[in-house]
């Protein structure tokens, strides 16, 4: 098997995940895109495990570990998203600006009305 096929598929999946993380607004969709990126990494790990014919199967075992870590991450992430939803009544990541830095002086006049618009 030509090694270019799985690695190219993994690269494309990873960049689709990058697009999703940057472009999506809903926090759950961001988590889904993170899962896509993790799956691209898993595909690379399996591919190079097969390519190097690792006798300890480090790549495939690390893939299993990554899957477990992804499950832990999604559980914890969804708990955080639900907590945010309980407190704010929305999960849009670009409207959660409480921890944002104070804008510089000229922009300070613009910022309060954006915050008011963001209030549920």
């Amino acid at each position: 098997m030509h090694l270019a096929y799985p690695t190219v598929v993994a690269a494309l999946l990873f960049s689709v995940g990058v697009y999703g993380v940057l472009a999506r607004r809903n926090a759950i969709l961001v988590l889904m895109s993170v899962e896509l990126m993790l799956n691209a990494v898993n595909l690379n790990l399996v591919t190079f495990d097969v390519f190097y014919r690792d006798r300890l199967h480090g790549g495939q075992v690390l893939t299993l570990f990554t899957i477990v870590i992804a499950a832990a991450e999604i559980g914890l992430g969804l708990a955080l998203v639900l907590l945010v939803f309980r407190n704010r009544r929305m999960v849009d990541v670009d409207r959660l600006r409480t921890l944002a830095e104070e804008p510089s002086r000229p922009a300070a006049a613009v910022e309060p009305e954006r915050v008011e618009e963001a209030a549920p």
Binding site: L31, E35, N42, L64, I67, A71, I74, G75, V91
Partner: peptide
């Protein structure tokens, strides 16, 4: 790619558990 066990774990955990968790999250929000 001959990684059978990883494939079944992928089906069990990702398709089974993670997507159901995500659907729960979608419904609960």
């Amino acid at each position: 790619l001959t990684a059978e066990f990883v494939a079944w774990v992928q089906v069990l955990i990702y398709v089974g558990a993670v997507v159901v968790l995500l659907l729960f999250g979608i419904m609960l929000t």
